[in-house]
Design a binder for these strands. Structure first.
Lengths: 144, 144
DNA sequence: CTGGATGCAAAGGTTTTGCACGCTA
DNA sequence: TAGCGTGCAAAACCTTTGCATCCAG
């Protein structure tokens, strides 16, 4: 009925390597970074293939595609749902360890919308940028 | 000290029109939509100018730049902070009327990050897409 | 074998930028 | 008048696609 019959599940070296490499890291690499990682194993793999496989793997729920505000796509080898923090300086993305408060209970009134859910992103300054910062004159440039 | 001396505050017809037109609408237009709106007043205004001014206005806090997950930039003529809902079908963006629960109190533990804040986006199906939907076989395709 | 997957390269969509000229302050 | 802002066009970026070929099942 739905278009969920997913014929595209053929196992290839490319797909395998992409998944394995992505799961090795705890960072949340961009497609291009995944491409660089995969190239170390398959030198002539193409960027297009990386995109196609990342898309497919995320459709199958094996990885997670992160579309964070104002940045390119990033991919997460851990498929379970969790929140992320991104650094406003260097854009790196990390997992949030725990959240106090109850974001799960947020309910919303939104002019006739059938609200399906929400997405929360945290932002701040990562440890390494905090260090660099003490000694220089940079200032936040966030506009929520 | 900081680079916040903002010399770029010269008043021009382009900037004025962009702000006025953006404030006229309650939608959350993309840069290109703002461009189309502005062109009705200044036929030969350029897209580049629109981008530059939108950026500037948002830096000055006169408008708000929305960088929603997985979509192009949108702009909001209302500068105060409020949440948004976007339609998973047609991508339109509306204001959230009210939020129950207490997202403001969310606190987070995030490996050494200095957490500055968070961003919440709601998503769902807008009224007009709900109508279209009753009679057809489309299904959600959200991967959070 | 068959048709999904690949590599390559071109195209697409969005945003930024370089440059010479124009206009605000 | 000085130099920020503009229009135009090219470039930069990121992602998707067309196509001939390859290879997993």
């Amino acid at each position: 009925m739905t278009e969920n019959m997913n014929k595209n599940t053929r196992q290839t070296r490319q797909k395998r390597v992409i998944l394995v490499e992505l799961r090795k890291v705890t960072s949340h690499p961009t497609a291009d970074e995944v491409y660089q990682m995969a190239r170390k194993k398959i030198p002539n793999i193409s960027l297009g293939t990386v995109y196609r496989n990342l898309e497919q793997l995320s459709e199958q729920g094996k990885i997670r595609k992160l579309e964070l505000a104002g940045s390119q796509m990033r991919f997460d080898g851990r498929a379970y749902s969790h929140h992320h923090v991104s650094c406003v300086r260097c854009s790196r993305v990390d997992d949030v360890i725990s959240v106090r408060g109850n974001p799960g209970s947020i309910d919303v009134e939104a002019g006739g919308y059938q609200v399906l859910g929400h997405r929360i992103e945290f932002y701040g300054v990562c440890p390494s940028c905090q260090k660099k910062e003490s000694a220089d004159e940079r200032s936040p440039r966030m506009h929520l």
